[in-house]
Design a protein around this nucleic acid. Sequence first.
DNA 1: ATGCCGGGTACGACCCGA
Length: 259
Amino acid sequence: MKIATWNINGIKARLNNLIIWLKQNQPDIVCLQETKSSDEQFPYLSIETLGYHVETNGQKGFNGVALLSRMRPYEINRNLPGDISDKQARFIEGVYSTQNGVIRIASLYLPNGNPIRSDKYLYKLSWMRRLHDFAIDRLRLEEPLILAGDYNIIPRRIDAKDPTKWKENALFLPSAREAFQKLVNLGFTDAIRAVSIEAEYTFWQYQAAAWLKNDGIRIDHLLLSPEASDKLMQAFVQKKMRGWGQASDHVPVWVDLDI
DNA sequence: ATGCCGGGTACGACCCGA
């Protein structure tokens, strides 16, 4: 089963690229982030025509996540527990039934957290605590589980072309990286790091010729539960997508599971 | 050293992202 996560930076601006990419790559499940669309405005038909079920947690203008899947999910959750006052659309979880059992997948868009001395950084840490508690709950199910998405976390120095320039940034601040490592330490496998010890960037900013200079960072991750990790066959970053016309600033990250 | 780019809203600037 081929599963990808992709921060598309606007479903409307990226719809043509998304459609071509779906046709060329035939993923079974896709986790999208930053759709920047209300559910009412989401282009369901263009995607359903290609044979995908579409489940969204949308928000007008900002954030927004979605799950595209060949199979119909038998359960969808749009709420990350822990703060009923949080209205930002950053989480959707789907549960799918296969011939080899269940697979559970969340598409998440973790808060950026900049500037670091602001409520935005506190919101990031609080969101990560909620994700941590949610993960403990889900791991108890002992199912193949993938927490996929834009984590807005650069885990290690190897994950940035120039780590020094991210030193005072919410993506690389020790407390944010510690929270990420604490999550991984619950028993998850960082899929890309399971197959590669090289630099594997997933984001290059639009400014300052970042793509030209390969000045990237790795912030989009697929965390696999032990039951999912056991079935991992392949993982890779689809770097070439950054070179397409009208590219997102993020590229897709893939895993292939023996399910 | 972020707001240089790019997408959003809404249609002229301004918010947001990493």
